[in-house]
């Protein structure tokens, strides 16, 4: 299968390892990965901040980059960015009165998958250790990000993949379904409420005794990890794609070049 990677802007600029891990997983399964170089961002920051006019430019760019016959399906390692592509792009186009964009956005949206959706529903991965060689001998907890959970209805796809990684010890996160408080520009506009939510999330994570909190959205993980780091916690955050990409021969370091917030030595 020919799979187009939508890296997402935050992963592209801040967490390239997550995209590299995604590529590694798909190539390991024998698929061809392409990277449409015109891609930039899904535009949800603009949409969620009410800047629809600006969002239209960003959405139009995404649709231009992905409205090609050069791939079978598109994938992104992010629940919220995929939710934006699937649910917001048409809305933005409609609000801006751009019917042509609306139609093309719907086509692109329908072909776009979140990584765990693609792995589970399309590629049939039920056991990461057996089918992907995943091995990660660490104690890990997991935060299901809101948009993946509530907009894409990912249910336990990410968690089940993590549970099937060799050597991993998964511990349950209390109140896992509670928002971490990121919310895009919410974390700046209502910084104090956001921080209060993050404090409770951090306390729940630290209470599990896990070394790491995993999840499927780099932005939420940056928020959670940033809070943990500020508190001086040693607990870090790591995208589930990187955990799946880790093998016995090539274990992913809990810290790499991109020092994960909170994992200071």
């Amino acid at each position: 299968m020919k799979i187009a990677l939508f890296a997402t802007c935050i992963v592209d600029a801040m967490y390239p390892r997550t995209a590299q891990a995604t590529v590694a997983l798909l190539e390991r399964l024998g698929h061809e990965v392409v990277f449409p170089t015109d891609q930039a961002c899904c535009g949800q920051m603009h949409v969620n901040s009410g800047y629809f006019k600006e969002a239209r430019t960003v959405v139009a760019n995404h649709v231009r980059a992905f409205d090609t016959d050069d791939y079978d399906v598109a994938v992104a390692p992010s629940g919220s960015c995929v939710a934006s592509v699937k649910h917001q792009h048409e809305l933005v186009a409609r609000r801006c009165g751009d019917a042509a964009l609306e139609e093309r956005a719907a086509v692109v949206g329908a072909r776009t998958y979140e990584l765990s959706q693609l792995l589970t529903d399309v590629l049939g991965i039920t056991n990461a250790a057996a089918q992907l060689g995943s091995h990660f001998p660490h104690k890990v907890t997991y935060h299901p990000s809101c948009h993946g959970m509530r907009l894409l209805h990912l249910e336990d796809r990410q968690l089940n993949l993590l549970k099937s990684v060799g050597g991993i010890e998964m511990v349950e996160l209390p109140e896992a379904d509670q928002c971490c408080g990121f919310g895009g520009t919410f974390s700046m506009k209502n910084a104090e409420v956001s921080a209060a939510m993050n404090e409770d999330k951090a306390a729940n994570i630290c209470g599990t005794g896990a070394e790491l909190c995993s999840g499927g959205d780099a932005s939420c993980l940056m928020h959670i990890g940033g809070g943990l780091s500020r508190q001086g916690s040693r607990v870090g955050t790591l995208h589930f794609a990187e955990i799946l990409a880790s093998t016995i021969e090539n274990p992913v370091a809990v810290t790499g070049e991109i020092t994960l917030a909170g994992s200071k030595r």
């Binding site: 390239p16 390892r17 995209a19 590299q20 891990a21 590529v23 590694a24 997983l25 190539e27 390991r28 399964l29 024998g30 250790a129 057996a130 089918q131 992907l132 060689g133 995943s134 091995h135 060799g166 990187e242 990409a245 880790s246 093998t247 016995i248 021969e249 090539n250 274990p251 992913v252 370091a253 790499g256 070049e257 991109i258």
Partner: peptide
């Protein structure tokens, strides 16, 4: 490439894509 049902531990160098380099 590790097709379909790879044996654990025989994942090959595919994943060096990111982390090995880093």
């Amino acid at each position: 490439v590790v097709p379909g049902n790879a044996v654990p531990g025989h994942a090959g160098p595919g994943n060096t894509a990111g982390h090995g380099t880093e």
